[in-house]
Amino acid sequence: MTLEAWSQLWPKVPVLLQGLVVNLELLAGLLSLGLVIGVAVALVEVYAPRPFRALALAYEWFFRGVPELVLLFLFYFGPSQFGVDISAFLAAVLALGFRSSAYQSQIFRGAIQAISPGQSLAARSLGMSRLGVIRHVILPQALRLSLAGWSNEFSSVLKDTTLAYGIGVVEVMRQARYLTARNFPLALPAFIVVALMFLILTYAGNWGIGLLERRLRVPGLEARG
């Protein structure tokens, strides 16, 4: 790894950053999808009748048990076998988003179950409907309680966006491979730069979530343990 390699890499950093933007878009997409489905699955698991609960658990089990790469391949190549073409990016958002929802649902379920039953009793005693209780009493508390777990999930899926490389999304890993395929000595510096980018993003993200956690903090409502 020579100084020359580093100086050759320097002008290419913007290209890597372009790739990184794609990772961030992917991240935003998959986290939102995961959040919406995750909350829904968690609510089903806690409140819905038995058969639905079992279904939700099976969903969780499938998406937690299959490697992300396999999911990516299923979502990307699966539809095309039925004549439906799907972009690699969309396939990645769906595959990683569904996977993330299976993890997020566990976080939310834990949070919902950590809220004392007295809360919902008190709300019902005011005459609130079951849905009203969930919406106005349970969810606001549960979402706050899940921030710690959610911050773990964030760091984990941020890094997992690199897996989209496997189905050809032109994200940062793919850009780095393009660079280094043409110029082999760039490999080490290029991947080190990519690593640094993720290091910074991971810490920046966790810092942001910590900030959010403090902003939303309510005395007496803390995640235990």
Binding site: S155, K159, T162, M173, T180, F184, L188, A195, F198, T202
Partner: peptide
Amino acid sequence: HLFRGTPLLVQLMIVHFGLPNV
């Protein structure tokens, strides 16, 4: 901190495609 803060895939690429540089 270093190894938890960076993707395993990047670590794999460094080991397999980067280390040959040295």
